[in-house]
Design a protein around this nucleic acid. Sequence first.
DNA 1: CCCTGGTGCTTAACCGATTGACCGCTTGGG
DNA 2: CCCAAGCGGTCAATCGGTTAAGCACCAGGG
Lengths: 358, 358
Amino acid sequence: MDRTSATRLPVINSEGERVRDKRPTISDIAKAAGVSTGAVSYALNGRPGVSDATRKRVVEIADRLGWVPSSAARSLSDGRANAIGLVVDRPARELGVEPFFVQLIAGIQDALADGPTALLLQVTDDATAELEAYRRWWAGRRVDGVLLADLRDDDRRVELVRELGLPTVVLAEPVLPDLPCVWTDDESAVSEVVEYLAALGHRRIVRVAGPTTFVHTQIRSNAFTAAAGRLGLHEARVVHADYSDEVAARVTRRVLTSGEPPTAMVFDNDVMAVSALAVAHELGIPVPDRLSLVAWDDSALCRLVRPALTAVRRPIAERGATAVRLLLDVIGGGEAAHVKTSDPELVPRSSTGPAPRP
Amino acid sequence: MDRTSATRLPVINSEGERVRDKRPTISDIAKAAGVSTGAVSYALNGRPGVSDATRKRVVEIADRLGWVPSSAARSLSDGRANAIGLVVDRPARELGVEPFFVQLIAGIQDALADGPTALLLQVTDDATAELEAYRRWWAGRRVDGVLLADLRDDDRRVELVRELGLPTVVLAEPVLPDLPCVWTDDESAVSEVVEYLAALGHRRIVRVAGPTTFVHTQIRSNAFTAAAGRLGLHEARVVHADYSDEVAARVTRRVLTSGEPPTAMVFDNDVMAVSALAVAHELGIPVPDRLSLVAWDDSALCRLVRPALTAVRRPIAERGATAVRLLLDVIGGGEAAHVKTSDPELVPRSSTGPAPRP
DNA sequence: CCCTGGTGCTTAACCGATTGACCGCTTGGG
DNA sequence: CCCAAGCGGTCAATCGGTTAAGCACCAGGG
């Protein structure tokens, strides 16, 4: 019995008759061109070993038949999966809120667009599942490399990819000696924001940061403290939240109802800033007359609320695209190197203004 | 010369020595168990042909070595890619705004979580590129099936997947006889919204719809007109926009400054509703006192703005998960069938209230 | 004692592409 | 005139699995 019909799903037409799968293989091309499959392979891959005439004929036939190499066959033969992986470790609910990952993915796609490489995406909601995903992908040879986002202190993923020898690009400041990092200069952006607020007369500035375990949180917080120190803003301080609107609301409420409330607040994402805007509204504190707000990562959210939020716009998509190009390079055996993206940009809108006169 | 070292990337350790790739194959297992690779395959796949003792031994060895099947090898042999594809055809900029796709992806991942199947994602910004993506995936045998979102009139993707015989599940109302559809009952939700507004005394209601080419737009618009007719709201009408905040703002401004402005507006997404809120603010029209607003698809955006927006919450993630399960079923040779998700839910917040007394 | 029928393996073909080794033919140099 | 080199191919092994077919062995029945 024909093995094909027994083990594969048969392809049938509307009359229920079994038909040949229309996808051509190199042996179809070889047959049509009257050469061996080896010759076809050489011809199609631009390698020497076939005459120009044969090459031309083979390429034409391949085009006519609409041949596309079987990714499985190619992978098996050359050991490349032609795919890269990204695990997004964030609860699904929060995911939709922040534009970060979506913009990142858009940038990744941009760099992947006309190559043979595909993106494998996984959304998990805990770190162990994320590790498991990388391990499975590696073991099953499903990806040639991975992108690591949201680097933490003592990140277990780093040890893992080192141990596995899995090509990796990290979306983080260049804190790792052996893994290429792609980062955006948050430090100078933080300085710029603090200087901007100081120039408007603000002295009591509170930064509402994300979780401390993230490397970028620490970097921004340090930069914030340093900039405030440089400018003599001794009342500036950092409080921590978790990116969610609920916690941001609670923290903002506490800060604004404290003894000496700040006249300006800087948030580590857009959701927290919008949440704070609602809290100010609820407390009857006019923005920006008595309180200025700055969001990190610009988004539609910032543009659409009233007053529209002043925000720091980072080139997130660019970062994704750069990371992909670097990763493909590393996979191809190229030199690993750290890469800095273009700089963030402060987008002033209506949520910031001169500090109120005491 | 050892071919491995010539064609594959060599795996080297930190001392620069070439080491064996740690990923075990079935022949490693076979060697360790003292049986043939065929026997290992039977044992690991739970097929008859090996004794219980051998099976147990093989499974234990496989576990110990951390064996995971090579996806390429398996694909080549059984013709399955163990992946499904989703093309998101939307400009990257808009993508981050709406929660729809992100929630959809979260649901998809949920259904895929502990199976062998992966999600291939592609973001394009025109319909032709989307068709091309499906064709490439099919020709390269990269996916076993695809999900189609945002069905349009005379959608070219439908012909394509039919022609290719590519297993497909459509995220749309059951308008296609031959392709399984997964949908949410928008019609009754539209009725509910209209009845809710009518009960609050509204008679002049405007629905700001998305592009007419989308099937769901037409279905909602028809349901809206029908419900309004049933309730005798002859001044209800539908205007069209494109989901973006800019166009929504323009349309809203025109509607609100017309001769007889509506007292309630229903929007086809959250971004447009928030944009309208800003316009109302700008025109000095208090919400909900003189204008009630309802958003379609609930999101953080709706929750966070002030006043918080009344919204129709649809089970988007559930829909994604259901679609995946159905698709896996179809791929496995199961019966195709249309599936309805749980019903949408009207979430009343502060943007709707009694119609103003004339 | 031979024949039959399971059981429990092994063997080998196969999936579709890549690639080192090899081979026959032409051409040119000594 | 003969041999070497180069050109343009073919051949076959290989990647890591799956699976039909075959085969050795043992138990039981006639």
